[in-house]
Amino acid sequence: MTNWQPSASQAMLRCRAELLASLREFFSQHGVSEVDVPVLGRSTVTDSNIESIIAEPFGGSGYLQTSPEYFMKRLLAAGSGDIYCLGKAFRNGEAGQRHNPEFTLLEWYRCDWDEQQLMDEVADLISRIYATTNQSTLAVHRGSYGDYFAQVLAVNPHSAPLDQLQQLAVSAGSQSWAGETRANCLDLLFSVQVEPQLPQGLVFVYDYPACQSALAQTSVNDQGQLVSRRFEAFLNGMELANGYFELRDGAEQGQRFDEDLKARSAANKPSIAVDSHLMSALDQGLPSCAGVALGVDRLLMQLQGADSIGQVMPFSWDRC
């Protein structure tokens, strides 16, 4: 007997169809246009912690996209206005209770908004869907990364010296964290120690450490610390969405990509050619905007109380 049957129940697949329809309805009502950008591209992200799946179109080199971000930013630079993409994204080597190498991502951009305004809209969207599905009100919390981190670990993540973070990471993880980078130590501590303590409901965490900016702007907060204008949303403790007040400075973005490539080289990971189309689009000018990517499979898991991502998708990778 082969495992030919779907990994999700028929009832779950109907819930999934309703969720996809309600997401599209929300954006239609809010005047945001759908774009179905390619999932197969000639280039991909340089992020040292994200691995792309390599494809070979026409015998040449290509990649399945890890998110629609670069294509969407090229559309924004070309004058698209507010857009969303509801489609597939791919990440190599990611499989588990909450991960599947192919997954459904909802990503959208709002022109002339910052990340705080976008958080309002994410809260509105999730609260509406939750109210319809679960007939109850979703608690929404909002706080800075520094506050949530300090509440649990009594340490300021922005100013603590690296060796202190490494010591904390060694005791939270294993000996192998002794020589890790600041960003990786913070990731471990936040995931293993802070996330389990986050309140139930929808939690927005904003003002990430500057070393975890990726494609977000940085700015100085009230306490004079350099922070990333990045946020994450957690639903009942599960990472659900990641958003930025988008960086528009092509030169600075180029520097960050170069640092990514150095980190890839140090970790013996394959080098990636920086996406020249994206760099040209940034040079042309990205409008001021905020963007967010939200894991649709995970949202469905939380709405339906599913334990594993395979239970909410037609066929998880082990059945593909």
């Binding site: 992020d47 912690n49 588990g96 993880g173 990786n184 990731d187 471990l188 975890q212 990472e239």
Partner: peptide
Amino acid sequence: NEFVKPGKGQAFNR
């Protein structure tokens, strides 16, 4: 053995 990976961070196993 649980695979954990922040969207923008390093992968690890609990």
